[in-house]
């Protein structure tokens, strides 16, 4: 195999890994983007919704044996999809009981004191969730390795019989599911009456009240849906990646990088942003050491925030 051939192979391998991982990041970002787009609140607990999605999936599949009858391949995916409704409920309750006291129409759109306390409130929630998870679930990394994670499709490269790109089956399935769910949410937000009312509340909360839209309820729904979507992404990550209670903060940064890249508040943009982060992360390994993979994300993130704060894919007229 020629050196060029090897480089091309490595590039294609990283590209494929980046796309598949990027789809998952995209789905996480969509959940966060929905919350940010509607409520204009920076939610630090989003990473912990992801982490809880992982544990909910894990316990649904192994803990109580509930889903064991589905077999080792189906059970993790069904579990991940079920984590969505569970976290939807959790998000709904969190907003209803605590968050609505400091957010809502008063604070919407303002970046004054209201915004300041929301930011710090979600930081407090994040600390409670991840440390509470540590108490409940222990610090041992868990994994829910789907048998698919050990299998791969081999795509031979035509120019060289010796080289091939391996596509991990678990990551391909997770990426496809992410695409489908992301697209479904995009359609619901774009087409349904509910989705339009969320977009209206995001666009102009005061005018939305004049239309008879309950903006507090819209915020609650956006928060709950966003938590559920991110939890599903978490469950899908868990099918081929180990996890522990502190993974939340690693991912929350990735999610924010993606959402900012996507222009803060557009669902499609958030998905593209997440995909871009996945690609940057995987392609960076070709040129810089593995440990700097994540540093590369932050450098890209900082460059985007400082040079193009409206995001790479952001357009002002298109929000949510």
């Amino acid at each position: 195999m020629t050196p060029l051939g090897a480089a091309v192979e490595a590039f294609l391998q990283a590209l494929a890994a980046g796309i598949f991982l990027g789809c998952l990041y995209g789905l996480m970002c969509v959940g966060l983007g929905l919350i940010f787009g509607v409520m204009r609140v920076i939610n630090f607990a989003q990473g912990d919704f992801l982490m809880l999605g992982m544990y909910v999936t894990f316990y649904l599949v192994t803990g109580f044996g509930t889903l064991a009858f589905l077999g080792p391949i189906m059970a993790p995916y069904v579990g991940a999809l079920l984590a969505g409704p569970v976290l939807f409920l959790g998000g709904w309750l969190l907003h209803r009981l605590l968050m609505s006291r400091i957010t809502g129409t008063r604070a919407a759109g303002s970046e004054g004191d209201g915004h300041y306390s929301q930011l710090i409130f979600t930081l407090g929630v994040a600390l409670v969730l991840e440390n509470g998870a540590l108490i409940l679930f222990g610090s041992e990394p868990q994994s829910l390795r789907s048998p698919l994670a050990a299998r791969a499709w081999e795509i031979p490269l035509l120019y060289d019989p010796l080289s091939a790109v391996f596509l991990n089956k678990a990551s391909v399935v997770a990426a496809l599911l992410s695409l489908v769910i992301g697209l479904a949410l995009y359609l619901v937000i774009g087409r349904s009456r509910l989705g339009k009312s969320l977009r209206a509340a995001a666009d102009n909360p005061v005018a939305a009240i004049y239309m008879g839209i309950d903006v507090d309820r819209a915020h609650r729904l956006a928060f709950a849906i966003g938590a559920g979507i991110t939890a599903i992404a978490g469950g899908l990550v868990a099918t081929y990646h180990p996890f522990q209670p502190y993974v939340g903060f690693d991912y929350v940064i990735i999610m924010y990088a993606g959402v900012v890249l996507g222009g803060m508040g557009s669902i499609l943009g958030a998905f593209w942003g997440g995909l871009t982060i996945g690609l940057v992360q995987q392609l960076a390994t070709l040129v810089i050491p593995l440990q700097l993979q994540n540093a590369a994300i932050f450098v890209v993130f900082l460059l985007v925030v400082l040079l193009r704060p409206q995001g790479l894919f952001g357009r002002t007229a298109e929000r949510v």
Binding site: L123, G124, V125, A126, L127, V128, L129, E130, N131, G132, A133, L134, I135, P245
Partner: peptide, 8 residues
């Protein structure tokens, strides 16, 4: 994780 919970 009690330290983090208390802070939170």
């Amino acid at each position: 994780g009690i330290q983090g919970v208390v802070f939170g």
